[in-house]
Each structure stands twice: as structure tokens, then as C-alpha cells.
Design a protein around this nucleic acid. Structure first.
Length: 310
DNA sequence: AAGGCTGTCAACCGCACTTGC
DNA sequence: AGCAAGTGCGGTTGACAGCCT
């Protein structure tokens, strides 16, 4: 058995009692500065990927390939952003999660510099906490409705008030959000809330593939639930809920929504660098939507039976 | 001051998927 | 087609800092 005393892997400077080395002399636990340096040097020399070769090429780095990959992607990568999740990012996370569910890596692709791990942690520590505080399940229809019809518009309003002047001349995610919200409001009155859901069940998502599903709609978002358009080679029998036609008799809506999906993806990509990296009001950088004022407001909204009465 | 509690976040684990043979 | 190795992803855990009593 070998005990390691690691350095300040988390920047705290506090010594961390190391852990036992496994059968293969593999180290676990917090990374030391020396290990970080070894890994950085390895990536400089060999590039990303081939993580299982790290232990071979980086002498002294007794980590598994998986551990090295994780350390690099979540911490050492030069473009990793640190610090508070901005209001815009929070909004983006709420929106994308309502569409895709716990597809953290997919969501992370729309938040430059943020890792799936960071977003996942944000969701668990902030959003789920607030859902608990509001006494509703994070996957419940109630919570999703509150998020969609109250929280997101409210966040948009705040962002618009703070950054409208600087964002006004460019397409922004806010424009897409408005587009999206408007469509949903259009639909909300007559159908969506009348559907029965099991609020505790997160719909199965295993049928989705990673990249080809970029423009698919996850059943997690009830908006997409009704307008899900599976790939032509996929049978639709497992798809729950009525089709767009069933719901509103509007055969063109699926196309409208598909077009919107392309819009929002395009817009996000185009504008991310602008509005995330300084295009907006910098005062929002450390803002947090989950403050007392907003939570109080939301509690009030949730206490009303018909929270989307428009 | 000390112990307990809570929130945050880095890291690990297990499983699924992909790729090469 | 089947297998193994490599990689990616999401869930979970554990360490630590800060707050509370």
C-alpha cells in the first residue's frame, strides 16, 4: 500500500491525503500539480485522444486513460471557462434541458467553455434545489410549465432590460427564445395542459443517437413531445402522445417547429461568442436567477392552479 | 471555539456506444 | 458476425469550504 500526499489539486492549497494504489498501481483521487503538468505536456506532444496511451508516454503519470481524459476536458483544457454561470447561460441551460433532458454533453456544446460536468452540477445544485424548495419534482409538468411560461420569460425580460441596447443589433438567443415561447403560448391554451403525464417519470431517451439527433426533439420537452419528428427510418410506434396533426390539425406546424429548431441552433451558434463573451451587460456575469425575489415570485405562481392562463 | 450542516465541484464508476480486427 | 479495446456519457460520491448553532 502506498499513500500519496497530493498538492493543491483544487487550488485550495490544503493537503489531501492520497488514496491507495490499486492492483495496477493506478492513482485515484485529486490530481497534483505535477500530474497536471505531465498531462499537459502529453497533450502538447500527442494531442487529445488516445488517452490509454498517456500512462505509457507520460512517465510517472499513473492514471487511467479515462481519468486523464476527464481531467483534461473538465479542468486543464485552455478554453475551459470558470466562474459563475451567467444569467444567459442559466437561461440557455433551462431551455435546452427542457428540450433535451439530461443530455449534458449536448447542452454543453451550446455553452462555449462550459463542460457537461459543470452544467450537470449546476442543474443538480441549483435547479433541483429550487424545485425541491418549490415542493415539486424537477421533472413534473408543473415545474416544466413554471419554467416555460414564467421563469424563462422572466429571465428573458431581465436580460433584455440589462443588455437590450448592446444586443439589439444582432440576432441573439433571446430572439429565438421569444420565437419559441410564442409558438408554445400559441399551443398551450388548447392542448398541452390537458394531457396526462406521469410527473415522476423521465421519458426514455435511449432511442436518440448522439449527433444525428441534433434536430430531433426529445420527449422530455412536452413541446417537442407533440411535434417530434422521428427520422424517416425510425418507426414511430413508440412515440407517445399525439402527433402535431392530432393535436391541432395543423399539418404545417411540424415544419414550422423544425424550421425553428434550425433557427435556434443556427442563432445560438452565431451569437454565442458575441453574447457570452462580452456582447452583453457584464453585470450579468455573476447574476443568479435563483434569488429570493424570483423564488418568491415563482412560489406564488406555482400556488396558483392555472399558471399559464394566457 | 468547536462541531454539525449544507452547498459546490472534482473525480470516479458503470454502462453504452464506436471502432478496428 | 463477433469480440475486444477505446471512448463518451450520465449518475453518483466524496472532499472541502463556508455558514450556522
Amino acid at each position: 500500500m502506498e499513500i500519496h500526499i497530493s498538492g493543491s489539486a483544487n487550488g485550495s492549497g490544503a493537503p489531501v491525503i492520497g488514496e491507495e494504489l490499486g492492483a495496477g498501481d493506478v492513482r485515484k483521487g485529486p490530481w497534483t500539480d505535477e500530474e497536471d503538468e505531465l498531462l499537459i505536456n502529453y497533450v502538447r506532444a500527442h494531442g487529445e485522444g488516445r488517452w490509454n496511451s498517456v500512462a505509457h508516454f507520460a512517465a510517472g503519470l499513473k492514471r487511467t486513460g479515462k481519468s486523464c481524459r476527464l481531467r483534461w476536458l473538465n479542468y486543464l483544457r485552455p478554453d475551459v471557462r470558470r466562474g459563475n454561470i451567467t444569467l444567459q447561460e442559466q437561461l440557455m441551460i433551462l431551455d435546452l434541458h427542457s428540450r433535451w433532458g439530461n443530455r449534458w454533453s449536448k447542452i454543453a456544446k451550446y455553452l462555449p467553455g462550459r463542460t457537461d460536468n459543470e452544467i450537470k452540477n449546476y442543474w443538480r445544485t441549483r435547479v433541483q434545489k429550487q424545485a425541491k424548495q418549490l415542493k415539486c419534482d424537477v421533472n413534473s409538468q408543473q415545474f416544466r410549465d413554471a419554467m416555460r411560461y414564467e421563469w424563462i420569460p422572466r429571465m428573458m425580460e431581465r436580460i433584455r432590460a440589462s443588455s437590450g441596447a448592446t444586443l439589439g443589433q444582432h440576432p441573439s438567443p433571446m430572439d429565438s427564445m421569444n420565437h419559441w415561447t410564442n409558438i408554445q403560448v400559441l399551443q398551450s391554451g388548447n392542448h398541452m395542459r390537458s394531457q396526462s403525464h406521469d410527473p415522476t417519470v423521465m421519458p426514455e431517451m435511449s432511442s436518440m443517437t448522439s449527433d444525428s439527433s441534433d434536430f430531433q426533439h426529445s420527449p422530455v420537452s412536452d413541446f417537442s413531445e407533440y411535434y417530434y419528428k422521428p427520422p424517416s427510418n425510425v418507426h414511430t410506434q413508440t412515440q407517445q402522445g399525439p402527433t402535431a396533426n392530432d393535436v391541432n390539425g395543423c399539418s404545417g406546424l411540424t415544419n414550422v417547429v423544425d424550421q425553428f429548431d434550425m433557427d435556434i441552433n443556427h442563432t445560438f451558434e452565431e451569437s454565442n461568442s458575441l453574447w457570452l463573451l462580452g456582447g452583453g451587460d457584464q453585470s450579468l456575469l455573476s447574476d443568479d436567477f435563483w434569488n429570493e425575489e424570483n423564488i418568491g415570485f415563482l412560489q406564488q405562481q406555482l400556488s396558483d392552479e392555472d399558471i399559464c392562463s394566457f
